[in-house]
C-alpha cells in the first residue's frame, strides 16, 4: 500500500513546496477592514462580486471573517454589488 502511494507521489512533478501566502492584513497592522471603504476590500471579491476564498487570497481565517462581514455590510447599503455581470462594472 505504502509503496503504491509513494510511486504516485513520485510521478507528480512538483517544483518545490507551494509558496506560502501571507495574510495582507496580518502583514500590515494598519490596514483596516471597513465596510465603509469598499475600494480597500474590492480586491478580495471577484469581478462578479463574489468573496474570494482564502485559499486563493491567502487571507488568514481571522481576517477572512472580518472581510466577509465587511463585504456583506457594504452590500446591504449598496456600496458593493451582490452580483454583477462583470460587463456592467
Amino acid at each position: 500500500m505504502r509503496g503504491d502511494r509513494d510511486k504516485g507521489h513520485d510521478k507528480k512533478k512538483r517544483r518545490g513546496p507551494p509558496r506560502r501566502k501571507v495574510c495582507p492584513f496580518c502583514a500590515d497592522k494598519n490596514a483596516r477592514i471597513d465596510y465603509k471603504n469598499p475600494a480597500a476590500i474590492k480586491r478580495l471579491v471577484t469581478e462578479r462580486g463574489k468573496i474570494v476564498p482564502r485559499r486563493i487570497s491567502g487571507v488568514c481565517a481571522k481576517h477572512q471573517r472580518e472581510v466577509a462581514l465587511a463585504v456583506k455590510r457594504a452590500r446591504h447599503i449598496a456600496l458593493m454589488p451582490y452580483a454583477s455581470t462583470g460587463a456592467a462594472a
Binding site: 462580486g49 452590500r75 449598496a78 456600496l79 458593493m80 454589488p81 451582490y82 454583477s84
Partner: peptide, 18 residues
Amino acid sequence: KRRLAFPIGKSLKGLYLY
C-alpha cells in the same frame, strides 16, 4: 450622492449620510 452598486426600486443613485 453616490451611484448605487445595484438599483434599489427605481433609484440608481443614493445620498449617503453617516
